[in-house]
């Protein structure tokens, strides 16, 4: 499945879109996969995941076709 990346998370991954394996079925597993694949993300002060453009709890299930994004600490304004 595809994962959108923004801000510093995009810089760490070196891409705005990466694929993640189908064995990842919820947000907590996705975060763990990210931390394993991109250890620098463990240094971020927070790492949120959005599913279908909504902030998602760790327990949220990820289904095929969902729009999934990594949201590092926001800094607008």
């Amino acid at each position: 499945m595809g994962l959108l990346l923004f801000g510093v998370a995009k810089d760490i991954a070196g891409a705005a879109l990466v694929g993640f394996p189908e064995t990842v079925t919820n947000v907590a597993e996705l975060k763990q996969w990210l931390y394993d694949r991109y250890p620098a993300m463990q240094q971020l002060s927070s790492l949120m995941v959005a599913v279908n453009r909504e902030y998602a709890a760790d327990t949220q299930i990820i289904r095929a076709g969902d729009e999934v994004a990594v949201i590092p600490p926001v800094s607008g304004g």
Binding site: F6, G7, V8, A50, I71, V74, S75, G76
Partner: peptide
């Protein structure tokens, strides 16, 4: 509105410093 925008809206800034460094 501005306080909440800065906390919740997914917008990011990258800072370019005069010494050539780049910060998030």
């Amino acid at each position: 509105t501005i306080d909440t925008l800065k906390e919740t809206v997914p917008i990011w800034k990258k800072e370019f410093f005069t010494d050539g460094e780049i910060g998030q």
